[in-house]
Design a protein around this nucleic acid. Sequence first.
DNA 1: CGTTTACGCGACACGTTTTGACGCTTCGAT
DNA 2: ATCGAAGCGTCAAAACGTGTCGCGTAAACG
Lengths: 341, 341
Amino acid sequence: MTEGRGSRVTLQRRMLLLGMIPRYPRQRSAPELVEGLSHRGLDVTLRTIERDLENLSLFLPLARDERARPYGWYWTTDAPLQDVPAMDPETALTLCVLDEHAASLLPPVARSRLAPLLRRAEEVLAAAGEHSGLRLWPERVRLLSSAPPLIPPPIPKGVFETVQQALLERRCLDIDYRSRSKEGALSRYRVHPLALVLREPMTYLVATVGEYTDPRHLALNRFESATISNEAVREPPGGFDLNNFVAGGSFDYPEEGEIRLELRVDAALAYHLQEARLSDDQELVVEDDGRTRLTATVPQTARLRWWILGLGTAVEVLGPRPLRAVIAAEAAALALRYGGG
Amino acid sequence: MTEGRGSRVTLQRRMLLLGMIPRYPRQRSAPELVEGLSHRGLDVTLRTIERDLENLSLFLPLARDERARPYGWYWTTDAPLQDVPAMDPETALTLCVLDEHAASLLPPVARSRLAPLLRRAEEVLAAAGEHSGLRLWPERVRLLSSAPPLIPPPIPKGVFETVQQALLERRCLDIDYRSRSKEGALSRYRVHPLALVLREPMTYLVATVGEYTDPRHLALNRFESATISNEAVREPPGGFDLNNFVAGGSFDYPEEGEIRLELRVDAALAYHLQEARLSDDQELVVEDDGRTRLTATVPQTARLRWWILGLGTAVEVLGPRPLRAVIAAEAAALALRYGGG
DNA sequence: CGTTTACGCGACACGTTTTGACGCTTCGAT
DNA sequence: ATCGAAGCGTCAAAACGTGTCGCGTAAACG
């Protein structure tokens, strides 16, 4: 009966094992791991797994939680990421650049989840740099933002993680929400999380509140606290489609359909637009006075109007007529304000 | 002499080995691997490594190139990423969100380097989703951009990789550059790469051209071709500081010093600014007419002016005086244009 | 064109490791 | 208090891992 044998699968099993052990806050017990492995066709004794874990922890930052009886194994928080196939320098650079950008895009908690990945990336870059003499690659790459120069509001500690988890587990949240009123009165709601929306400086949870069935958006920075309840999320009748919700205008991003945009732009802007175009069907025609006439089919959005207005006199809207009217009115009002002041 | 022994370090060595094998275009030979290992204190015979590789390739997507005699080992292109500590769902979600955003931020080639990482992230999310019943997490998270609605210009195939590599290896590039002139005449230059700058829709290489010593910026989409030369990069006399170069105004981002900004904003905007602030020292004071007076110390940039102008009548610049004059002039000119049209 | 060299690979021998089995111990839960 | 699940020490057989040797081959060099 004793079929004691070292086997060709032992390395494979141990590698799988390592991949099944989570990072610190989570943990997984030996019996769970056994089941996980047998689920993948590797049937071994519990004892073997126990021995594997013991061996592995000799040279890897593995630890176990002995407070509860089926001991839970986990990677220590500072365990370096070992990726296999190793990350290549190009990927590492891309990651560094993205992370830098993430600073203004994502709440710090979300960004901090990337830390192990980033440490690894910097390691890779350092190694590549050493090899090639360029140690400070980050000093040689820069990402310039085109977004509004606003500082993301701080989200109270723990809120983002909790919201993310509730969304993942599809469970209700009990939140203390600071209402729009300036006094910042707190209200306690039970909400049904539906989606997460990130818009440059702000982060929103889309959810239905209490017994209502219409989705609202709640700014995460106004959450004073959030705790997960046991109640399961109730989806709105008819289901919930995030695309529709966003397009519906809840985020100042109503999709008001496509328009045939006609602009007259100055030479400098025309040159830029020739490279970074407004649409695939964009056409540019140089006029006699050196300015350029542009036509393009684009979705009509608030973002488009910001862009046009922000460019000031570099651009003139010729059509469609309603858009021209909007911009013209804005220009007139603006001039009046500054003229009168 | 025969010290034949299976050993505790076997697994460790093989894991290190896996980490030293690159992904497809690159490859590494067994002798190289032996040296790499001995460099880390693991001295083994070449034969052992050969056997290790053979064993590992039995259950991992490893392959070898037998065209040149020291065979080169590599991971196949589609080799899934095995990360150890496994990626957690939060990280996976963050990655997905960032990648979605990267679409407009980075050239497709750069983004494609993230593909293995992303496949892994989706795997993780799928697993987490299965467990919790939420399969389509990406359907529940959206990132809305605040950047100009422009389409990134396509960069000719191979250019980005080559530029990145030249920068990494600090070697000169021979490029065919489409000049700003509308005819798009091609010119061949030898350039000394210094830095890479990404500004929302565009990607630039900062480099000195030929024998000149002043850094210029070259748009990557205007590269017709790029090949790495053997010549080493010559840095400008006095060195090169990317921060200074960017701040110097070469990207429409001159840092013109800090100003004490004074605005009068409408109620809706004031509410938003209360959360996402312009600066840490920003102050808001409600005035009698319901509007709000804002003061903040901010760097004076084109981006700031673009933001102010884009908001139209929602904001009025009170100070500093020169900025108010700029905006007022722009408003007047704009009104005149639309009034006259 | 012959020689050299480095690498790939099959074979061998031997000690270590691996692994299921068994039993005892230790907690936590019903 | 009792039961059961996990942790852990021990054992013995079998397979695995390792250095060594030698041969074949293909590219490099004179």
